[in-house]
Amino acid sequence: MVDLALKGEAVSVSKPSDRVDVLKRLRLNDLVFRILTRSAAIAVLIILGGIIISLVHGAWPALAKFGFGFLVSDTWNPVTEKFGAVAPIYGTLVTSAVAMVIAVPVGLFIAIFLTELCPMWLRRPIGIAIELLAGIPSIIYGIWGLFVFAPFLQQYVQPFIIDAFGNVPILSDLFAGPPYGIGILTAGLILAIMVLPFITSISRDVFAAVPPVLKEAAYGLGCTTWEVSRDVVLPFTRVGVIGGVMLALGRALGETMAVTFVIGNAHRISPSLLAPGTTISATIANEFTEAVGDTYTSSLIALGLILFVITFIVLAAARLMLMRLNARVGT
Rank of each mutant, 00 (worst) to 15 (best):
T260Y: 15
L23M: 06
V210N: 11
V213D: 13
E9S: 12
P178G: 07
N265M: 05
I284T: 03
G240M: 14
A291S: 10
A316E: 03
P211R: 13
I128T: 10
L117W: 04
A208K: 08
G264K: 08
I284F: 14
W121H: 12
T311A: 15
R123E: 00
V86S: 03
A150D: 04
L122R: 11
L189P: 08
I89N: 01
F236D: 03
E131D: 15
R25Y: 07
P178A: 10
I35D: 02
F149M: 13
E9H: 14
P61N: 02
L31W: 03
A282Q: 05
R27A: 13
A282T: 14
F288Y: 11
W76T: 03
Y296F: 13
A275D: 15
V106T: 08
T224P: 05
G49P: 01
G188W: 02
K24V: 10
S298Y: 03
F68R: 12
A258C: 07
L249Q: 14
L322A: 01
D21K: 14
V195A: 06
T278S: 13
T331Y: 07
S54W: 08
G107Y: 02
L55V: 05
V44Q: 09
I130N: 11
I162L: 06
N29L: 11
T278L: 09
F147R: 09
R27L: 13
P159V: 01
I46F: 13
T297G: 06
L189F: 09
V104Q: 14
A192L: 12
G8T: 07
A150S: 14
C223L: 15
V206C: 01
D163T: 08
I143D: 01
D294M: 07
F113K: 01
L253F: 15
P235E: 12
G244N: 14
I170E: 05
G293K: 08
P78V: 06
G240A: 13
L234E: 00
L196E: 00
L221S: 11
A248W: 15
P235Q: 11
F70R: 02
M323S: 04
P169H: 06
V239H: 15
L122M: 14
S298E: 05
E255R: 08
R25D: 11
I182R: 15
I140Q: 06
R38Q: 11
A218L: 06
L191H: 15
G304S: 11
S172C: 08
Q158A: 00
I47T: 09
Q158Y: 04
V292Y: 05
E227A: 10
V148C: 01
L36D: 07
V233S: 10
